[in-house]
């Protein structure tokens, strides 16, 4: 938590830079694992036959699930499973982290068996004053998910992280 916090030129210079692409997998097991984690009871997310009867080509990714990043020790974040390299490090010195919000725009369907190529970029930096948390840094990250087989962008997600 900071009384005063300012976005430096070095931080601003990171806006717009893209990460190296990383592979995310959507598998039958990962779809079931996510659906189970949310607490779904709809068989369409668990039973391939039920999914096909509902008109899907395979188990569909539940809403907000955009695949699981391939985990490689030393190259992936042990905490978030996301690729550790690539996102610019912002030396803001703020220890607290909260999720601010998220928007997912779907441009295609995502089903088990899909491999997605994922690229992120820092889209924006803002500060906001909070009575409880001091001056907060709000980062907006834009992530693009491309189907590896078809080359089509299937989803774009914008997420806001709050550092305080």
């Amino acid at each position: 938590m900071a009384e005063r916090f300012e976005i430096t030129d070095a931080m601003r210079a990171a806006i717009g830079k893209e990460t190296a692409p990383w592979t995310y997998e959507v598998t039958t097991t990962s779809v079931r694992g996510f659906a189970r984690g949310v607490g779904y009871t709809d068989p369409v997310y668990f039973d391939v036959e039920a999914a096909r009867r509902a008109g899907y080509r395979h188990l569909p990714a539940p809403p907000t699930y955009l695949g699981t990043p391939v985990f490689i020790p030393g190259q992936s974040s042990d905490t978030f499973s996301t690729p550790a390299a690539g996102m610019p490090r912002l030396d803001h010195g703020l220890p607290g982290l909260l999720d601010g919000g998220v928007e997912t725009e779907y441009r295609g369907d995502i089903c088990a068996g899909d491999t997605l190529i994922v690229v992120s970029k820092l889209a924006d930096l803002q500060t906001r004053a909070s009575k409880a948390l001091g001056t907060m840094l709000i980062t907006t990250t834009e992530t693009t998910y491309t189907n590896a087989a078809t080359g089509a962008v299937v989803a774009v997600q914008r997420g806001q992280a709050i550092f305080y």
């Binding site: 996510f34 607490g39 539940p62 809403p63 601010g100 998220v102 725009e105």
Partner: peptide, 29 residues
């Protein structure tokens, strides 16, 4: 926060009953 986001996805999915698709879904925490 993302559990709540996914739960809102489940809310919409249950309501739609696979008669359509989500084009966009967002929330603030």
């Amino acid at each position: 926060g993302r559990f709540k986001y996914a739960a809102l996805g489940e809310l919409v999915s249950n309501w739609l009953g696979h008669r359509g698709r989500i084009r966009k879904i967002s929330c603030e925490f």
